[in-house]
Design a protein around this nucleic acid. Structure first.
Lengths: 165, 165
DNA sequence: CAGTGTTATCTTGACGTCGAGATAATGGAG
DNA sequence: CTCCATTATCTCGACGTCAAGATAACACTG
């Protein structure tokens, strides 16, 4: 059983037999898989009328728990985007009625982004759809394999976790 | 040992204890890891004065072997971008002297993109740098673990491989 | 060989993100 | 108090990508 990446590695090996390509076997698959997952995510969300970037913001608010309120600064750290991008995202989500901007009572520079009831319904439905879709994709792996995979990925993530991120 | 994703899952579990979050353990890590890898890739390439998108195109030409010549259509299929994007990329690579556009002798609609000597030197150096960087990131895993991980990822990729991709 | 659907590439306009900088408020040091 | 470095958010211009459509050439059909 060979896949895209096996062919990629075979090509490189033919051209550059002097190089150790073992890293490519892992990282190229991570990259491609992430790409396919993005598409699957987009598809799962489209059934609920939301975009991946919308989900990212709404989900951060949703999982922060009651009262579903975070500052733009907290949101941009959760979602790994710049402040300009977050301003734009909040604008568009507010236009759609998914969130509201409230003044921060303790800091007049600050703003609180409040998830609306509409937004909460949307993000809950979208998340359930996403889980169903991802569950499908995982069906090829046993429970034991899933745990192994999650563990190996966590190990790989470790260097990126806290330091100067 | 807990990571970002453990915290994410814990948050969701507190808010939505009714849902099975095992898929998140895997896919959220794949997505985040891919993001960090993109940054690491960008950093590794910057030492050689090229951008990730440049590498993607040049590497496709390089690993195709002599005479390092592919059509824009082949390139866009290799790199998973649209035709408009590829036209733009070839334009910029040609400006930098990394590739040349040649007419396709067999099809007057067609074009052949030819890797230049400069382009070949650049992509070879960049690839070596990338492998060194990725080797570092893999150092936390034993050879056995790497093989296991690559295998599990390949299994996950299988549904995406040939069908209507 | 005329007609027609397909293929290959390029063009265009809209969109989302980034990076740098602007604005405004805060909090600590002297 | 007054400075001043820091923090929070927003603004603006540039850039890369995409989607849709334009153009041109090919290849099959009758």
């Amino acid at each position: 059983m060979t896949d895209e990446v096996d062919r990629l590695v075979a090509d490189w090996h033919r051209e550059r037999g002097d190089l150790d390509l073992s890293a490519v076997e892992v990282f190229s698959r991570v990259g491609r898989l992430a790409r396919h997952l993005d598409l699957a995510r987009r598809k799962a969300f489209s059934a609920h009328g939301i975009e991946p970037w919308e989900f990212d913001v709404l989900a951060a608010l949703r999982r922060s728990g009651e009262p579903y309120r975070l500052s733009p600064g907290q949101l941009l750290r959760e979602t790994m985007v710049t402040s300009g991008t977050m301003t734009n995202r909040i604008d568009r989500l507010a236009e759609r009625g998914m969130v509201r901007r409230l003044p921060d009572p303790a800091d007049r520079r600050g703003v609180q982004v409040q998830l609306s009831a509409t937004g909460r319904r949307a993000v809950d439905a979208a998340f359930e759809g996403l889980l169903a879709s991802e569950h499908q994709l995982l069906s090829g792996l046993s429970g034991r394999d899933r745990t192994t995979l999650a563990g190996l990925l966590r190990t790989l993530m470790a260097p990126f976790d806290s330091p100067a991120d």
